[in-house]
């Protein structure tokens, strides 16, 4: 876990250096485009985290394993935070480039729904006292909400949106300068490492909170000293 945190830190420094010092000024958007180095990684992450969360929720539901449900709950706050940051940085980018903070565009609206899904998941889990039932209810919500992910991803193709199409895809060469791409990918990797570190840290807290009566928790060296 400290390794992931350290990796996240180093990658962020490297990514910001590439993004803010090496990458050239954009021909159309000037230096305003530099928001991309935050906006794209946090948006990707907000979607990935949801998929991973739904995966753990499904595992927990099918095999009735406690740790998978804890993993799902550990991911939700970080996912919500990234969804919020995606909307925030998007608004600050939209204002100078599109002339508006917000439009009810398919991409933006579906990302907002994602934020509400995360918040709904957390609210539902904390509203039910019985932990096992809370896990199950949350898992069902997470699984239903996963249909929103392809909607977000493909929204720019399915509808005529103000949001631009994907700059990076698996099938085509990316439509951006290599140095910009490197900066963005470094930041995306940093976001991954950050998420892994934080989610593992949070799942440890959840285990302590839920399993505090078990002998093995009482035998941990953090407790005995």
């Amino acid at each position: 876990m400290p390794w992931f945190a350290a990796a996240a830190f180093c990658l962020t420094v490297a990514g910001l250096y590439v993004g803010f010092f090496m990458a050239p000024t954009d021909a159309q958007q000037g230096d305003g485009y530099r928001i991309i180095f935050l906006h794209v990684p946090v948006s990707w992450m907000s979607m990935f985290i949801y998929v991973v969360m739904a995966f753990w929720a499904a595992v927990g539901l099918i095999f009735n394993s406690r740790l998978s449900a804890m993993m799902a709950s550990a991911l939700a706050p970080t996912g919500a935070m990234f969804a919020f940051l995606s909307l925030w940085t998007g608004a600050l980018w939209g204002k100078p480039m599109w002339g508006t903070w917000w439009v009810w565009d398919a991409r933006l609206t579906s990302e907002l729904i994602l934020l509400f899904l995360y918040m709904g998941f957390m609210a539902l889990q904390s509203a039910i006292d019985d932990q096992r039932r809370a896990d199950k209810a949350g898992a069902v919500l997470a699984l239903v909400g996963v249909v929103n992910i392809p909607v977000i991803y493909f929204s720019v193709q399915w509808w005529n949106t103000l949001h631009q199409g994907a700059s990076v895809s698996l099938t085509q060469a990316p439509s951006m300068a290599t140095i910009m791409l490197i900066g963005m990918l470094l930041m995306a990797l940093a976001a991954w490492m950050y998420t892994i570190a934080v989610a593992l840290m949070r799942v440890r807290c959840i285990i302590l909170e839920r399993e505090y009566r078990t002998a093995w928790v009482n035998d941990l060296k953090e407790i005995r000293q």
């Binding site: 000024t25 000037g30 230096d31 305003g32 530099r34 928001i35 935050l38 906006h39 925030w88 940085t89 600050l92 980018w93 204002k95 100078p96």
Partner: peptide, 11 residues
Amino acid sequence: MGGYATYVWGS
């Protein structure tokens, strides 16, 4: 930031 300071640094 080429005049985009509020937006870039705000993010």
